[in-house]
Computed example of a mutant assay.
Amino acid sequence: MDQQALLAAIGFLDQDLNYPDIANAVIGEFDDNRRDIIRNNGDVPPRNENYFEETVPRYTMDDFYRHFRMQRQTFELLTLALGRQNNPQVHIIPFEKKVLLGIWLLAKPESFLAAGDRFGLAPSSAHAIYSQIVDGVMNLMDDVITWPNMQRATAIANFYKNYNFLLLFHQVFRERSNGMPGVIGAIDGCHIPIKQPEANPIDFYNRKGYNSIILQAVCDHEMKFTNITVGMPGRMHDSRVFRNSPLYRQMMNAAHPLISPENHLIGDSAYPLLGSLLTPFRNNGHLNAATVNYNTKLSKIRCIIERAFGLLKGKFRRLKYLDMSDELLINKTVAVCCILHNFILNNERLNEGELLEEEAAEEVPAEMMPNEREGNERGQHKRNYIVDLLVRV
C-alpha cells in the first residue's frame, strides 16, 4: 500500500490528526498481516482479538495481579506516568493495551508470537510495542531508582540500628536482629541468563556453566533498588564489576563523596573493604566471638539484597532467560524490571509469596587495589569500632 495514496484517502479528516502516524501504523499492520498470510500458505493466522477489550476488564483483582504482577490501580498510575511522555495523537492501538502487552512480556517468558496472538497483534507489532514501552519506562529511572539523600540516608541507618522498634512496621526484617549503625544499603550482584552472544561467547559464559550478564544493585531496607549497573559479562568477578561501575567512581571521589563518613554500604567478601563499604571478616579459623558476632549480624542484614533479587525475578519471569540478540534491548529489559520493581513497591504492599530463591553466589575474596589503600584503612578502623560497639549492644 502506498503511503501517499493512504494520506490522500484520509485527507478529508480533521487537520489536527497526525496523518503520517496513522498511515504508518495502518501500513505496518497491513504488512504484518500480509507476511503472516504468506508464511501460513494463504491462511490468516488465528488471533485473540478481544483479550484486552473483553477479557481483561472482567478480571478480578486477584486475576489481574496474577497475570500482570501489579494491582490494577498501580497499572493505572504507570499508564499515566508513561502517557505523559507521549504527544497527544490518535492511537491505532490503545495506549493501555500497549502498556499491558509490555508488562505481560516482562512478567512471562512468552515469545512475541504467543504474546501477540493473545493481544490480537502480529509478532512484529508486539516487538515494536515492547520496545516502545521499554523505552518509556527507562525514562522513569531517575525518578524511581534514587540514591538516598541525607535525610533519607539517616532514616535508613536509624532503621537498621533501631530494628526492634520498627519491626512492627516493616515485616521484611522479621526474625532478624541487628544493631549495626550507619548502614544505608546492601550491595550484591546476580546473574541474568541470556542466550549465547555471537560476537563474544567466552566472556559471557560464567563460572556456573551458562551465559549471563550481571546485574549489580544496591537496595535499602524496603528492598527498593537505589542504584543499578546492568550488562557486565557473566564471567566477571563481583569486585571487578563493582570497580568498573559508575557507583565505584562516585564512592571513590574524595572531593565529592557519595556516602558520608558515618554511613556505609554492606556487602559480602567478594567486595573490597572500604570506609564506605563494610564486608565480613574472612573466616580463617581464628575468628573470636566478637568478630563472629559482627559477621552474623552483617549477614542477617545483607541478605535483604538477595531477597530483593528474588522478588525481582519472581515478578518478572522473563529474567529467567532472555532469548534476545539485541544487547541494548537486553540491558534495557533488566533495567526496566528494576524500575517497575521499585514502582510497584512504592504503590503496593510487599507480596512475599512472589520471592524466588536466589542462587547462592560464589564469594571469591576481593583483593585490595593500590588506589584503595587509604579507603581500606578507614574501613578497617570503622569495622573494628563497630565490632566493639556490637559487643556492648
Rank of each mutant, 00 (worst) to 15 (best):
Phe52Ile: 01
Gly83Tyr: 00
Gln73Met: 06
Leu166Asn: 15
Ala81Asp: 13
Phe119Lys: 11
Arg58Phe: 00
Tyr65Lys: 10
Ser131Cys: 15
Ile37Asp: 08
Lys98Thr: 06
His127Asn: 07
Ser111Gln: 07
His127Pro: 03
Phe75Leu: 05
Leu106Asp: 06
Ala126His: 09
Glu54His: 10
Asp32Ser: 04
Ala153Phe: 00
Phe159Val: 09
Arg118Trp: 03
Trp147Asp: 05
Pro88Ile: 06
Gly83Ile: 01
Asn162Leu: 03
Lys97Ile: 06
Asp43His: 15
Gly116Trp: 02
Thr60Ala: 01
Gln71Asn: 05
Thr146Asp: 07
Asn164Trp: 02
Phe75Tyr: 14
Leu106Ala: 08
Asn87Ala: 12
Asn41Met: 12
Pro148Leu: 03
Lys161Val: 04
Met61Tyr: 10
Gly42Val: 13
Gly116His: 06
Gln151His: 12
Ile103Glu: 01
Asp43Asn: 14
Pro109Gln: 13
Arg34Gln: 06
Phe119Leu: 12
Ile133Gln: 05
Ala155Ser: 02
Tyr130Phe: 15
Gly116Cys: 02
Leu106Ile: 08
Thr79Gly: 03
Ala153Ile: 02
Pro46Val: 06
Thr154Pro: 00
Val172Ser: 15
Asp63Val: 01
Ser111Gly: 08
Lys97His: 06
Glu76Gln: 14
His170Gly: 01
Gln151Arg: 11
Arg47Met: 14
Arg118Tyr: 03
Ile133Asp: 01
Lys108Ile: 08
Met70Asp: 01
Phe119Tyr: 15
Gly136Ala: 07
Asp43Glu: 15
Lys98Gly: 03
Val144Asp: 06
Arg58Asn: 04
Gln89Gly: 10
Ala126Lys: 08
Gly83Val: 02
Ala81Ser: 12
Trp104Gly: 05
Trp104Val: 03
Thr79Lys: 02
Pro94Tyr: 08
Tyr130His: 13
Ile133Trp: 04
Val144Leu: 05
Ala126Thr: 13
Arg69Phe: 08
Ile129Val: 15
Asp62Val: 13
